[in-house]
């Protein structure tokens, strides 16, 4: 193979690999990126049932209820304007408490319940999930002051 041909072949291969990777990435992104919703967002533009979304807000005070099986927990996430019922089966994060911030990955069921697969709570008093910044937390008396440093 001549030198020029070799460079050309290599450049073409590189191009094909890059385009392939780009297409694969674009396809996967379109399919798999999950959008972040607050309860108000869900009221405004309801996502389809079963679509993977990420829900964030504050756990409403007095809303945490455990099922009789001892491992399923039901609670309400609110952002000051709207409320969303959530159910989760599993061990709740260490700092999952009423009046505190939470981010849940999961999807809506047909009857409007949000079923969470994973729960993220704030990990310490200095840390707030990025998506929760700027959410009005005045409706939750325990949550003032200490959440955002």
């Amino acid at each position: 193979m001549k030198a020029k041909h070799q460079r050309l072949t290599l450049a073409l291969l590189a191009l094909v690999a890059l385009i392939g990777a780009g297409l694969l990435a674009a396809f996967a992104l379109r399919d798999q990126a999950s959008y972040f919703y607050t309860p108000s967002d869900i009221v405004a533009k309801k996502p389809e049932a079963g679509q993977a979304i990420r829900l964030g807000g504050m756990v409403e005070v007095g809303s945490i209820k455990r099922d009789a099986d001892g491992v399923t927990v039901n609670f309400i996430v609110q952002d000051g304007d709207a409320r969303q019922a959530v159910s989760y089966t599993g061990i709740t994060p260490d700092l999952f408490v009423e009046g505190s911030g939470v981010v849940a990955d999961g999807s809506l069921t047909a009857d409007g319940q949000f079923v969470a697969e994973t729960l993220l709570a704030k990990h310490d008093e200095n840390y707030v999930p990025r998506e929760l910044e700027g959410i009005d937390m005045t409706g939750t008396p325990q949550a003032t002051g200490t959440l955002i440093e």
Partner: peptide, 14 residues
């Protein structure tokens, strides 16, 4: 200003 998260399904698939 839209918030979005890209998680394991994307990375595993791609």
């Amino acid at each position: 200003d839209e918030k979005l998260s890209v998680g394991p399904p994307y990375f595993n698939l791609a």
